[in-house]
Design a protein around this nucleic acid. Structure first.
Lengths: 241, 241
DNA sequence: TCAAAAGTGTTCCGAATACACCCATGC
DNA sequence: GCATGGGTGTATTCGGAACACTTTTGA
């Protein structure tokens, strides 16, 4: 079979139409962090195929829409949150990955501070639940592959870019930050050294606020300094944890 | 407008068909390395749209095929090479990126040792040429964006994974390797330190062969030790240059 | 003998590591 | 008081950077 080059299929519209027959979807690995564990938000499917199975948050993309807008829309419909941090990580295109047709899906991951998350009733989700990434159920479609690739990507990116902060509330203590990185990277850090390293980067604004109602000395609260981050990025700065 | 969830569009086939109308293509940033410079292989288009413009190596994906098979096929048709190193890096889906319809393209980059490259006559390419990444022409479609993202991805990945070796012949000297990394990263290295660092990784097999006919002391030849690399990778080893 | 690149050894400095120690709070 | 986590200082070690030096070849 001759497969003509992409942009030269002009002889007949019908020939082009043969190629314009893919479905496009977004599947989003929604990461959260609570109780010292990294979690993923999954949806229980209420329709065939894979009715009753757990699945990633995802949807078909309408021809008038694009990927990131679709991802924003579906995440807002589920959590009520706008402007969630989100990054594309990989595209999955196995021919038989979707039983109803040739659907290519683009994987995104997003990071949400889950205290803000409010479950929203939805026409297509029977229920949603946070799962620890250590105890995952079987997933619909090829979502286990997508999820694993998403976890792997997050673990790598979190070392070189300060994305981890997206998982914490806007004010946090250094020890909370350390605990987050320990959970993300499955690795222990030395407390004094972690503090020194992270403070030397000048990415944190110390606030004149402290923890309250804790049964130990209250810790100082910090905030991520986005302006400083953008300034450093321009000079070709590396995060490197 | 209600956009139903991806996997629940089952009421009417016609409804599903509305969503199965995307085109899918591959665009490949083919990197080579000669004369101390990193180069990219571009194609001169011989058809509308963008007739006469330079473009990335790319093609529509047929519904019976998948991305990596399509990328392999097109690269083989152009260079005669099989089993070229290739990795997916990003998916581009701007609504208006293709004048003939809604075509989403997946960016790959590949690394070829260009001595092996033989230009192949092709029905769709008027000519092909290697361009230094410092002197690029204007490109068709959104290929400039794809190319820049590809360069950026290569520069990042080359630091943390030993992919650079794919750009060298199977036998090379340490100084050739250093020159490659200097070109890739636009950064000078100290010769003794570079040698120490790279040899300590145990990724190179020293061969009992030497350069010939050079007007200076002949350098020892090395080969990339893929077995050793796979062994180290299992233990959770990081390349880190 | 000279140019050019191969290849080695050594010093120096800064950063990461490993600890030991003190502080503030609730119970 | 004591348990708990907050927070600081320091001695030591290790790795990277800088650089001087020797070796081998062709011309």
């Amino acid at each position: 079979m001759k497969t003509p080059n992409a942009y030269f299929v002009t002889e007949k519209p019908s020939k082009l139409n043969e190629y314009l027959s893919f479905g496009l979807s977004v599947d989003c690995v929604v990461f959260g962090y609570h109780e010292g564990e990294v979690k993923v938000l999954l949806v229980e499917r209420d329709e065939e195929p894979f009715k009753g199975s757990w699945a990633l948050v995802g949807d078909l993309v309408h021809p008038d829409s694009d990927l990131s807008a679709s991802a924003d829309r579906i995440l807002e419909s589920l959590t009520g949150l706008k402007d969630i941090f989100m990054e594309q990580f990989f595209t999955f295109d196995a021919i038989d990955r979707h039983p109803l047709g040739r659907v290519v899906t683009v994987g995104y991951y997003s990071l949400v501070e889950s205290e803000y998350y409010k479950p929203v009733a939805s026409s297509w989700a029977k229920s949603t639940k946070w799962f620890s990434i250590r105890e995952l159920p079987e997933l619909a479609f090829d979502h286990d592959i997508i999820l694993q690739k998403g976890i792997q990507t997050l673990k790598r990116r979190v070392r070189y870019r300060p994305v981890g902060f997206e998982l914490l509330p806007s004010k946090f203590t250094l020890y909370e930050l350390q605990a987050l990185y320990e959970a993300l990277l499955d690795q222990k850090f030395d407390k004094p050294n972690f503090r020194k390293k992270i403070l030397k980067m000048n990415l944190l604004k110390p606030l004149n606020e402290f923890q309250e109602n804790v049964s130990h000395r209250p810790a100082k609260l910090y905030a991520f300094d986005e302006e400083q981050y953008n300034a450093l990025k321009k000079e070709g700065f590396a995060f490197e944890l």
